[in-house]
Amino acid sequence: MDLSYYKINKLLWRWSKKDGARIVREAKLSMDKAPPALPVPPAAKVSPTPKPPKPDPLVQMVDDLYRASDAFSRSKKWLDTPAPPKQPKPTKPEKTVPPFDIQEIPGAMRKEAMPIGARLMERWFAGRLNYSPTDDDERGKINQDGKPYPPDMYDTTTVKLDWVLKPERARSKYDYLINEAIRSDKARKALHDTLVPYKGRSDLFTTDICGDDPERLHKLFQFQRVGVDGTLAEKIKLQLIADVERSVVPDDLTAALGSFNIYAAIGSVRFSQDIASGVIVSSTTKAEITGIWVYVTDSYTFTDKQGDRSQYLGHWSSDGVIVIPLDGVAAISPYIPYVESPVTLGNPVIKGEVHYPIHNSDFRQWQIRHQRGGDFVVFTDRRFVPVVPPIKVYL
């Protein structure tokens, strides 16, 4: 039975609907490739081995004569040995489907113009075992050992804010955040509750408290956020349910961050009190927020919501990704099965022609099998944005 599928048209950067995908029963996703080696700490310096003393000239001459005689003896024996009988020509092995390992997906992502997404996935594969057993643990950044994520499970260099804001869908949300959302009633309430402990100051610069620690700034002073996009699985699901050929395909931003938030945290505040003729008129403190920090943070994980089917991430091969419409419907219906089998678009014995269904659960299976794979937290760099006019909050 031939199946319809969607493939990325790189010229138009749209999904292109095609027919002719055929199920391949004998193929199975490989998880056999060993994970990347963990970083090894630099070894201690070892003193060089002293050079051996030069041999005695007479002893050296005797050794040379012995080696020459031995070589002549072996050469004569080889000349006197009859030639072995000719072996029959080996039969050609039967052609089989080339294996596709789950660790080949980052390479395929690069072919689909998703280099940042590929780098983050490679980091996940290379990490030591780290994951959150529950949604609450993930929000609290608590791992399987009941401990906070270790420092090497924070990535602050791969994803840049300027890169995130290149697509219009992200830039428009950023503009909404700094121009409107930070002045909402909800944001003012959060600002009030956050600043009450600091109202005895004349001013506040949050970097004096948090230094260059993005996690501490986020925990203590974040007060507003706006959401951007949906996950790769959500975009594929919506695309397949709608069955719209010219829908925009997921891009590198989707592959890297999926559904994420742009955050605003307090940057600088000026405090003052109502004073008339040198006398304090009111005990109320006025806080004027004069600057904010804007950044993105997101968890890189393959967690599924409890009770839900594992999210379908497309059919992947070493050449890229396709999506099967039936999987999109199955993702929202407990009664329709997934297309769980690999499919081929041509000759299945050619590398890259067979595409394998990938779900979040596949990465979790790999994680359990190899006891590797580190869920981690992404932080972009931070941008200081002056707030003009300042936001006034009374404490």
Rank of each mutant, 00 (worst) to 15 (best):
R128W: 03
A21G: 04
A330S: 14
M114K: 11
I241T: 09
I332T: 13
H218N: 14
L217G: 02
F100M: 10
G107P: 03
Y6M: 01
G307P: 00
E104W: 02
S172C: 07
E340G: 12
D64W: 05
S4D: 15
Q222N: 07
V62K: 12
L240D: 12
P348N: 08
Y394I: 00
Q239I: 03
P98G: 04
P90N: 12
R372W: 01
S75Y: 10
V249N: 01
I358S: 02
D64Y: 09
I142T: 12
A108D: 06
P53R: 08
G107A: 13
E245W: 11
D193E: 13
N347G: 09
N347P: 06
F302T: 11
V281D: 13
K237F: 00
D64L: 09
S310Q: 04
E138W: 00
D137K: 00
R309P: 01
G140P: 00
S282E: 07
P48H: 06
Y5W: 04
Q103Y: 02
L161R: 04
P150S: 14
V385M: 10
P98Q: 03
S310P: 06
R309Y: 05
G127T: 03
H218L: 00
F379W: 04
T206P: 02
V40S: 09
F302L: 13
L120D: 08
L161F: 01
E168V: 14
L79F: 10
F384P: 01
F302N: 14
G117F: 06
K54G: 03
Q239K: 15
D155T: 05
D193R: 08
R246N: 11
F100E: 05
I292T: 01
Q87R: 15
S333D: 11
K10T: 11
F260M: 02
T254F: 10
L58H: 13
K17H: 07
W124N: 09
S282I: 02
I23Y: 01
K28L: 05
E353W: 00
S75D: 15
